[in-house]
């Protein structure tokens, strides 16, 4: 009997229809790329029982279990249930034992963050999981990523929304011994925003990107992190065939709650202005903004958003990147 499979439905159920007829792959997103090692055993079991024994670690921090016969989809979906619960995928209640709704909005990825990394300014996985809960499941094509510091190991500038951890360095001159470790560290690892004047540090607040290198270099705790955690929000970076480009800074020294709000607000903007011709309702948000204008985007994104006084908002954002779509 020939296979009779609703591929559209399967794709929205986190399945890939592969190039090999009759064979699919089960995609499991791991929000923030952080999971209990127990999950690995569960993935292994599915891969060895139903798949070809191989797993691809996806570019967005998930597992893709290869070589599964499409007629086993239902059974595999049941096996996915404990994994879905363990990694904290925001599953619709009625989807229990039936996999999870996916496609469109992509896994919120994260660098390893301050669980481990000395440079990171916040717990990236926790924020990724918080955002996951807020925006999933959703069909619209959104890419969000969290990175602990301006090193941007998570490459968040290639995302619609990139969240970069910042700290507002706090300086106690009476603990400073003028050792210059922060000045040297900022110069060699960051932007060179510090200088010594009268044996004390002067921080160029215009230049400082809040990376926190000074804090990690300080041997006396003259430099410490701000109690409040700050974030830089870069927007509308993308890869792709037409005009790949890096996301640009929109908000600097912003707070977590408002960033989550802005991401959620943007869904309404996309609903309103997405091209009717977008294939499977997939259009990078940046192209929509290019079409309808940044002011319109701001109108939607900033709904009910009250930024902190210290947050800097760039009123206009200009992108560049490589244009393959309108070269003459």
């Amino acid at each position: 009997m020939s296979l009779d499979i609703n591929t559209k439905k399967a794709k929205k159920n986190a399945w890939r229809i592969t190039k090999e007829r009759g064979i699919g792959a089960s995609r499991i997103r791991v929000p923030g790329g952080y999971c209990d090692a127990e999950v690995l055993g569960m993935v292994q079991e599915i891969a060895q029982t139903y798949g070809n024994g191989y797993v691809h670690l996806t570019t967005r921090q998930g597992f893709e279990i290869e070589g599964i016969h499409l007629e086993d989809m239902e059974e595999v979906n049941k096996k996915l249930q404990p994994i879905i619960e363990k990694v904290g995928i925001n599953q619709n209640g009625e989807d229990k034992d039936k996999g999870y709704s996916a496609s469109g909005t992509r896994n919120v990825s994260a660098c390893i963050g301050n669980n481990v990394c000395p440079f990171a300014n916040y717990n990236t996985s926790n924020l990724a999981r918080r955002i996951d809960k807020e925006i999933f499941p959703n069909d619209l094509h959104f890419k969000v990523a969290c990175t602990g510091c301006s090193n941007d190991c998570a490459k968040v500038r290639m995302h619609d929304f990139g969240i970069i951890g910042q700290t507002m360095p706090q300086y106690d001159p009476m603990r400073c011994v003028s050792c210059n470790a922060c000045v040297k560290g900022c110069q060699s690892l960051s932007v060179g925003a510090l200088r010594l004047e009268n044996y004390k540090i002067v921080r160029d607040t215009e230049k400082c990107i809040g990376c926190g290198v000074c804090v990690t270099k300080c041997p006396t705790r003259a430099w410490t992190r701000s109690e409040k955690k700050y974030y830089k929000l870069t927007i509308m970076g993308r890869t792709g065939k037409k005009n790949p480009r890096l996301g640009k800074d929109w908000l600097i020294w912003a707070d977590e709650d408002n960033i989550v709000k802005i991401i959620k607000n943007t869904y309404a903007f996309v609903e309103e202005y997405i091209s009717p011709n977008a294939p499977a309702r997939k259009e990078h948000i940046g192209y929509i903004i290019d079409r309808v204008g940044f002011e319109k985007f701001k109108e939607y994104a900033l709904k009910d958003v009250e930024l902190m006084p210290e947050t800097i908002m760039n009123n206009t954002v200009y992108w560049d990147g490589i244009h393959f779509d309108n070269q003459h």
Binding site: N114, P118, A120, N121, Y122, N123, G148, G165, T167, G212, V215, T216, C218, R221, T224, R225, E227
Partner: peptide
């Protein structure tokens, strides 16, 4: 205990 005043993020220091 100085909360969060350690060398790394979310790490305390005792001074």
């Amino acid at each position: 205990v100085k909360k969060g005043d350690g060398t790394f993020s979310d790490v305390d220091v005792v001074r």
